[in-house]
Amino acid sequence: MARLGMVIDTRKCVGCMDCVIACKTENGVPDGHCRDWIAQRLQGTLPHLRLTITSERCNHCDRPPCVSCCPTGASHVHDYGQVVLVDHDKCIGCKACLAACPYGARFVHPDGYADKCTFCIHRVERGELPACVSVCPTHSMYFGDLDDPESEVSRLIASRRHFVLMPDAGTGPRIYYLE
């Protein structure tokens, strides 16, 4: 079974927010909310500063705390690619998953259910790339099977220095950032 993940090259990302707009358009994300966002991390002391731009979203963790805390099974790991999804008709809106996610990746949809990035599973199951990956003008985003050593994402992780967000939280995030 595939284990889908994403690799994002922070040396190529310019923070243009095309990924954010593409996601909102593709998924009809309501005003005031977003499933992905851009963060800029500025580190160091003048004149030695380093700026890292990251396109962030649900990390589709290997050990997703949002799934284990869900009282109805609405939050689940999908058979296809082990993507973490929410079944809207099972969600009671208790917000335990919002409290459990260290990335703050979830929000309550105005219709009442918990919502977040789906890795555009409806596109991926058709053989297409997630909307954010497909529109990136600098080609900084890669998507594929992390369990396949020959996939582009696996080869990038094997060959380049990289980091994940909040590794200490122990959730096993599946979005890797190339340094």
């Binding site: 977003c34 963060a39 500025l42 580190q43 500063l49 917000k95 409290a99 979830r106």
Partner: peptide, 21 residues
Amino acid sequence: MFEIVTTRANPMVDPSLHVWG
């Protein structure tokens, strides 16, 4: 110095981080 600037607008989580009232 370590400063994070984020463009996201997720009122249920940011800026208060409060999901339960």
